[in-house]
Amino acid sequence: MAIDRFTGEHSIAFIRVEQLFDLARRNSLWYMAFGIACCAIEGLMSASGPRFDFDRMGVFFRASPRQADVMIVAGTVNKKMAETVKTLYDQMPEPKWVVAMGACACTGGPFREYPNVVLGVDQIVPVDVYIPGCPPRPESVQYGFMQLQDKIKKQTEDRLAARRDSH
């Protein structure tokens, strides 16, 4: 491909539509602002603040699940909250991903012994990326998002490779 790096003028690129979609999805992971507990301050507020500024990665928060690609579960999910988490996940359009942020969302964290706490959000919704830490630093969340991007890329590549092999 001979694309002018700066303007893209007079250039033509040949790309599979699947890969184009994949490129777009990977670079506009809009997450749903769904801060449950402490992790929300680190993963949603600091992340959208001026220092870490996730906007530059195309990671941006949306207030409605209908407009979101990613759900960051940032905090302890208890039995009262579990139903809401499931409902919100169901409301998100496909394709969708879930990031379990922090020890609580991964396994129950420091509150795992309390009978009212759900032991990890993966008991309710399928989780793509686990970010450990209590709370994880914004850098960890950034790394988690990069892992998610890799995962999306790899899924597309695997699909294409499988089709190639079957021919």
Partner: peptide, 11 residues
């Protein structure tokens, strides 16, 4: 309320 009840007092 109660969506974040995680038993600080009990634990």
């Amino acid at each position: 309320i109660g969506y974040l009840h995680r038993g600080i007092e009990k634990l």
